[in-house]
Design a protein around this nucleic acid. Structure first.
Lengths: 252, 252
DNA sequence: AACCCAGGTTGACATGCATCAAGGCCGATT
DNA sequence: AATCGGCCTTGATGCATGTCAACCTGGGTT
């Protein structure tokens, strides 16, 4: 986002310790020497473009990926062209954790917009982690956090109605972007309505109608991919567990 | 299940290396000495009973739990008594991985039937793992596997209809039980229809109707909690991604 | 500038499943 | 053995959301 005019190779290959994401990425209390060691195994490639794949389902697992700028979606391609979107990944977020177990990727990762991605060869990382307890623990937490996040999605898909799902989606985007120092109320969605619907278990048409409704209710202002959140508290309420009063739905 | 007539304390406190679950639990290639070290940190309690809690949402995270016999459900209790069932845990399966990140349990774990549970104090385990690479790697895989499993559930809740969900549930039970050396086609469900419905994002009534339908179609024989699977291949087909031909549902 | 087209919106309709309601079954309690 | 209560089943009905279809819109191409 904030980039110098002259983009030299050096600028792109900014070290972990200078990365704006370091506080998200690096475990607290890692010594400067350890950071250098970690730094030395991280690969940084030239920017990837919309449609590029980080990896595809079935490929051998080699590396984890960290989004530096841009965004990535992960999805499981199915037989006849259909797919299930598993998640959207914003700067500071890690991709590929689910592949450790089988030593192969079970999902594909596609870049949604021009993005900078760090690649972390897992085997080297694992060796490094073995000698840095705080890194080790950090890795456990990362994996654990992913599990916790998935549990939230389970609740969303299992118990929430369309309105609550889209509200939760907007809140999630808002929170994650603001954590990155970006505006929590004004942002661009890099994914299509189609992909949002797929992710939330809704039809495209439903997503579209809900955006319209939210706008009519003065909760947001939407223009194509540009979203301005006008009334975040109300949206947070909608997203929250509480189903509309009088509904017995899923109180089972 | 297969238990000696005289259940002495010694019998219950069977060491990891003699545990029938050891091949599920222990990473391949751990030396006997390392197994002993692991063994020494595992606590084994007297059997727990239906309704007992391993832990409750909000409690400080201290230990992981492994089901030896019986079954456990995890769930997130919500405001007004409602809950979302996150999973059912059978022998050999681990509980509590999601709590590492926040150092606190975000869900509760309740025993569904008389069960034997191993408790693994996490801090000690982490120290131990740091010095045993294969254990370390095994732990990563465990966490990763959990993430992969959650992704499957996401797909189930996001894209499958009621029939596919119940079929997938039956297939999952069948596979997991058979991996424990139990019958893949004849078993007892320790959870209620209510809990199954909650887990699958369906109303109790729908679950009940589907069991009836499956039985009418000759796929299963159901008597209360006792399930006999008569036509596993067909059920596997139902569970599989493929939605009924002609349906555009969720091909988005 | 005219065209094209993918993505998005909107309307009309269909349906799967939740909801509501009533009754049945079985184990527990006395 | 009679009573009770929890769990399960079955039937009737309604609604949220998927589906189908038509149109709109803006950006890219020639």
């Amino acid at each position: 986002m904030t980039q110098r005019k002259v983009i030299s190779f050096e600028t792109i290959r900014v070290a972990c310790k200078n990365c704006t994401l370091s506080q998200l990425c690096l475990p607290m209390g890692m010594s400067p020497e350890d950071v250098d060691r970690l730094d030395s195994i991280v690969k940084r490639s030239r920017p990837l473009h919309r449609g590029d794949h980080l990896f595809r389902s079935g490929e051998r697992f080699r590396s984890l990926y960290v989004v530096k700028t841009g965004s990535v979606k992960t999805y499981t391609p199915s037989e006849e062209g259909g797919e299930q979107v598993l998640g959207f990944h914003l700067p500071g977020e890690i991709i590929g954790l689910d592949a450790i177990d089988q030593d192969a990727h079970a999902c594909s990762a596609k870049v949604l917009e021009t993005s900078a991605i760090c690649e972390v060869p897992f085997q080297r990382f694992e060796e490094l982690a073995a000698s840095i307890p705080s890194l080790q623990h950090s890795m456990y937490r990362l994996l654990s956090k992913e599990i916790g996040h998935d549990a939230e999605m389970l609740l969303l898909l299992g118990k929430k109605n369309a309105e609550e799902r889209l509200a939760a989606f907007l809140v999630s985007m808002s929170q994650r972007l603001s954590k990155r120092g970006l505006s929590p109320t004004d942002f661009y969605l890099s994914m299509s309505r189609h992909e949002i619907g797929n992710y939330l278990g809704l039809a495209v048409e439903t997503v579209s109608r809900l955006f319209t409704r939210f706008q009519d209710e003065g909760l947001v202002k939407v223009d194509r991919k540009h979203v301005e959140i006008l009334n975040l508290p109300t949206i947070e309420n909608l997203a929250g567990a509480a189903p509309a009063a009088g509904s017995r739905k899923h109180s089972n």
